[in-house]
């Protein structure tokens, strides 16, 4: 057998064996990987809209996905918004929930961030940051309180900044405010419609 034909045969054989093996592995793991991804979103939605039973994706673009959620009676509770913005180091990916009128933020959760450990990374910490976002009035743009004050002293649409991590705090705030504005304009333009079928 000539050398070149042996080369071709060997490379083809290696390619076919590895391709076959990998497609088996790929098919075996695909469902599970997909399920992991969906579960992460599902869990985040339940975190940001307490009592959400089911959810429907109603709008999607890059770094901005809107879900409507319903409670166990099938009534619409509001929106869960998945979005991302530029933080101190890299993207901050987060999700927050609002009521159907977009007047109130239920909760906020951070899904992915690469902020400075010990400083900016505190945006994932409930005590240091996330608790200030619970049940905030968002009929006006939210504002950052700096330096932070006691929770009782915060205004209805004010949240505390993290000491030493103003940029990360501001990044989250700006991302949320921008998403709220975008959601409102999408509803106004009729791109997003909520069909009310509760009470049937």
């Amino acid at each position: 057998m000539s050398l070149s034909s042996r080369m071709v045969i060997v490379l083809t054989a290696v390619g076919i064996i590895s391709g076959g093996l990998l497609s088996t592995v790929g098919i075996l793991t695909r469902a599970r990987i997909e399920a992991n991804r969906l579960r992460e979103i599902e869990e985040a939605i339940i975190t940001v809209v307490p009592g959400a039973k089911t959810n429907t994706k109603i709008y999607e673009e890059k770094d901005f996905t809107v879900y409507t959620t319903r409670n166990d009676q099938g009534q619409i509770q509001g929106f869960a918004i998945y979005t991302a913005g530029t933080g101190f180091q890299d993207k901050i990916v987060l999700m927050f929930g609002t009521d159907a009128e977009i007047n109130k933020i239920f909760r906020l959760t951070i899904l992915d961030q690469k902020e400075t450990p010990g400083l900016g990374a505190k945006i994932t910490d409930k005590e240091a940051f996330l608790k200030y976002w619970e049940n905030k009035d968002c009929s006006h743009p939210l504002m950052l309180k700096k330096p932070p004050v006691a929770q009782e002293e915060l205004g209805a649409s004010e949240v505390n900044a993290i000491t030493g991590a103003t940029i990360s705090s501001e990044a989250v705030l700006a991302t949320v405010n921008a998403s709220l504005a975008k959601l409102r304009s999408l509803i106004q333009a009729g791109t997003i419609q909520i069909e009310e079928n509760n009470g049937q």
Binding site: S18, L21, L22, V25, G26, T29, I33, N36
Partner: peptide
Amino acid sequence: ASFVTMADRFLAA
């Protein structure tokens, strides 16, 4: 690369 893919998929799953 085949073994790396297996490790990667296994961890992701």
